[in-house]
Amino acid sequence: MKAIVQDTYGEADVLRFEDIDRPVAGRGELLVEVRAAGVDAGVWHLMAGMPLIGRPAMGWSRPKMRVRGLELAGRVVAVGEGVTRFKEGDEVFGTGWGAFAEYVRVKEDKAAHKPANLSFEQAAAVPVSACTALQALRKGENAARVLVIGAGGGVGTYAVQLAKASGAQVTGVCSTAKADLVRGLGAEVVDYTSEELTGTYDLILDIAGLRKLGTLRKHLTRDGTLVFVGGEGGGRWLGGMQRSLGGLLLSPFGKQNLRGLFATEPAADLEHLRSLIEAGTVTPVLDRTFPLAQAADAVRYQHAGKARGKIVVVP
């Protein structure tokens, strides 16, 4: 089968389009024919091997997992022993390591039936980014005023919609190019290229990862919650985790809750998102699709911060 592989860390030119062996579903796993795969920020981190604190898990000198990609949508072609929720022919979405390929193994507890009203391309844009937004918002449940920094990207567009659905007043920080998109999702917009951030918020989701911790705390209510989403910015060793660690150290000395987020993609959250999508409450925002053979270009585009919402690759 065709897949995007790498044997060394680096920029997108380390990714290669090659033939490799087709995987086999193990116990508790599905073998899925990939119809589309999402490009999330984690793809770049695993490709580049950054930040270095993650190398013990990723592989110190070279990637432990050669095939890139995680979030996907496709059709089940085989089920492993013990699988009870799915059968051959089911259309699914979820996560599986090595999704930039024609076939991928997916654990049963990392998959859900594809929303009936979405294409495969739209569904592939959901699992990682929407679960991240959902879990970040849970850190500040019942927040009346929510600020989403990086509101025009993959996680941000979901965060705005989910926060609006909860009844919150939402403000989104983004560039001029994404302002109309974010406003159309129901948020008030702060264009960071020409406007200063003002006011205070019960919950701040910092997805862009560039503002100093002290600056963010000034815009947080006395007992508000600040969630660092992702690991962008920072140095080679800690990356964006530097601010998360700083927040963790400061939290015990005040009422503000400052925390990082390690998101997962459990079946229960995927099913919850499916119900919201089928009800029309949440809709994936797709910027564009790339052929699988051009996955390196897709990763470059995503990492440059150009995407309005999500991008996907298709075999």
Rank of each mutant, 00 (worst) to 15 (best):
D7H: 13
T8P: 11
A12E: 11
R16F: 03
F17S: 04
E18G: 04
D19Y: 01
D21S: 08
D21E: 07
A25W: 07
A25V: 01
G26I: 15
G28I: 14
L31S: 05
V32W: 09
D40P: 08
V43G: 08
V43N: 14
L52G: 00
A57L: 15
A57R: 12
S61A: 10
R66V: 06
R66K: 09
R68G: 15
A73I: 00
G74W: 00
R75E: 14
E81P: 01
E81V: 09
V83Y: 07
V83E: 14
V83I: 15
F86D: 07
G89V: 10
V92W: 06
F93K: 02
G96H: 05
W97R: 04
G98N: 05
G98W: 07
A99I: 06
A101M: 07
Y103D: 02
Y103S: 01
V106P: 00
K110W: 09
A112K: 06
H113K: 10
A116M: 06
E121K: 15
E121Y: 02
E121A: 12
V126T: 00
S129V: 09
C131P: 09
E141Y: 14
G150N: 05
G152E: 04
G153D: 05
G154M: 01
Q161C: 08
Q169Y: 15
Q169H: 15
A179L: 06
V182G: 10
V182R: 06
L185E: 00
G186P: 12
G186D: 04
E188V: 01
V190A: 05
S194A: 14
Y201K: 12
L203A: 00
I204T: 09
I204W: 06
I207A: 10
I207F: 02
L210E: 10
K212Q: 14
L213T: 10
T215D: 13
L216I: 08
K218M: 12
L220T: 07
T221N: 04
D223V: 12
G234S: 07
G234T: 03
W237Y: 06
L238M: 15
L238G: 05
G240W: 01
M241Q: 03
M241V: 05
R243S: 11
S244L: 03
S244Q: 05
L245M: 09
L248R: 03
L250D: 07
L258T: 09
R259C: 03
L261C: 04
L261H: 13
E265V: 14
E265L: 08
A267F: 02
E271Q: 12
R274W: 08
A279G: 15
V285M: 05
R288N: 09
P291Q: 02
P291I: 00
A293W: 03
A293F: 02
Q294R: 10
D297N: 07
A298F: 11
H303K: 06
A307C: 02
G309H: 01
I311L: 04
I311A: 01
I311Y: 00
V313F: 01
